[in-house]
Write a protein that binds this DNA or RNA. Structure first.
Lengths: 124, 124
DNA sequence: TTATTTAGTTAGTATAAACTAACGTTTGTT
DNA sequence: AACAAACGTTAGTTTATACTAACTAAATAA
């Protein structure tokens, strides 16, 4: 069967990366706002990410990506950006493009993603 | 949150369509073999599809798509075929192409799918 | 005819991921 | 000092989906 086991974690890590670009520090409540989840859900998710060593959390509750967490986050973020831009170029509305990218980014293989990247004329 | 509520149903409906192309009749056990699931899982899934009126089941246990079931199955199947072929054309291995298509087909919007179709030179 | 295989069902289990509700801590306000 | 707000955590619930185990019923074979 399909696991889906990583999709949720990937999404949280991506959100942390995105938030770290616009906020001085990232807290659980910021993630809850960003993703539209309840803070209890985020709390549990952060516990899991902590256990998997994808984040560290300071005394004050500030959340930081570890190397492994950052690696995942950046991979997903790159996919998100690329797929969104590409779909928009194909005529898809910004909103739909972003929503679809958000789903595809978690399920596409590296092999396929790289193939699409190769095929799309980059930088235009 | 993401629902995912339909992905499983879509997958079963697609399998029924695919099997109906190669077998004289489709039974639960055929679906279980096709998808690699246990027959108990299929039994429960068929109950749900029956309740949603996407299939009918004869006395003998033969499974038939209703109009709504066929519509979904054909939409997913078209996506599967198209995405697989397209990825292969881009240089992705057949196996990966099919696996990725199998995931993307359930999460992509019609808007994006149609945009990709438009952009790919059809029939070559 | 008994025994075996095949098909389907049901009940209960497991996991992932969200939720609500309730609680403790800290911080800020009056 | 006392009360309220903000933040985080925990416990327990819900839903979706697959699982195992145990059962029935029908079909096949010894």
């Amino acid at each position: 069967m399909r696991t889906f086991g990583n999709e949720s974690a990937e999404n949280y890590l991506e959100a942390i990366l995105v938030l770290s670009k616009k906020l001085p520090v990232v807290r659980s409540v910021d993630i809850a706002n960003e993703l539209g989840f309840k803070k209890s859900s985020v709390s549990v998710a952060m516990k899991n990410l902590r256990e998997k060593k994808h984040i560290t959390v300071s005394e004050a509750g500030f959340i930081f990506l570890t190397d492994s967490g950052r690696e995942i986050a950046e991979m997903i973020y790159e996919r998100h950006e690329f797929l969104t831009d590409w779909l928009i170029k194909l005529g898809v509305s910004e909103e739909t493009a972003s929503e679809d990218a958000c789903r595809i980014e978690h399920v596409i293989s590296s092999e396929s993603f790289e193939a699409i990247k190769r095929h799309v004329p980059s930088g235009q």
